[in-house]
């Protein structure tokens, strides 16, 4: 059995994308590479001797509940790749950078949605990844709750969101050994608080307000592959 045994991974990834005005360049990178994403991740994993049995990707875009109304939070279901590549590509290509209001955005609400995704719990080996891209700090949870479309069942504060993420004694909504949170965000609230207090986090710190201009596609793929 030994030589025929290969690690087969079920991988779920949620892309959490700040889609406000300054994020156009980063969104363009994701758009340009959406069609190849499955192949590129599979190739990187293959180099590590790991086989992807099932890859699912979900997309959440966020802006600001108070400033952007119904465009503040858009979520998809998981796409199965490569089967759903075409519709995934269409979805990614429909994202447009606009809006945002003040400097901070509602990134924590988007992260909360990501954490509560319907993760694949099947398979011997699995990874549950959340990748966040934002060039802005995050509002405190509930900042936008006076907006009509603010979600009813949102974590009420950062402590509750921390419980949703979980730790080794309290599972939260994700599997402790499988979950990873990759942040491409500035060293600003609440991203820095997450970096300092949550397990299973890697934070690539970027300059605020610059649309993550220093981030390139290879860095994104490397970050994902190293986390699986």
């Amino acid at each position: 059995m030994g030589s025929n045994y290969k690690m087969k991974y079920n991988v779920d990834i949620v892309f959490v994308i700040d889609a406000t005005g300054s994020m156009g360049d980063l969104i363009d990178i994701v758009k340009k590479n959406a069609l190849n994403l499955h192949k590129d991740i599979e190739t990187m994993m293959g180099q590590k001797g790991k086989i992807i049995q099932e890859l699912r990707i979900k997309v959440i875009t966020f802006r600001d509940y108070l400033a952007d109304g119904e465009n503040a939070m858009l979520k998809t279901d998981f796409f199965n790749l490569p089967e759903d590549t075409e519709v995934f590509n269409e979805t990614i290509n429909s994202i447009t950078a606009f809006g945002g209001g003040d400097d901070p955005e509602d990134g924590l609400e988007a992260l909360a949605y990501a954490i509560r995704s319907k993760w694949n719990t099947e398979g011997l080996k699995k990874r549950q990844l959340i990748v966040v891209w934002s060039d802005a700090p995050a509002h405190e949870l509930g900042f936008g709750k006076s907006a009509e479309n603010y979600p009813k069942k949102m974590a009420k504060d950062f402590n509750e969101l921390t419980q949703w993420w979980g730790d080794k004694d309290n599972m939260g909504y994700m599997d402790y050994n499988s979950k990873r949170l990759i942040l491409f965000t500035p060293d600003l609230p609440w991203w820095n608080e997450i970096r300092n207090s949550w397990d299973n986090v890697i934070h690539y710190m970027s300059e605020a307000g610059k649309g993550l201009e220093e981030v390139n596609y290879k860095q994104i793929i490397d970050a994902i592959a190293y986390s699986i």
Partner: peptide
Amino acid sequence: AAMMGGDLF
């Protein structure tokens, strides 16, 4: 150099 942090780094 790129600034990185978190317990995975």
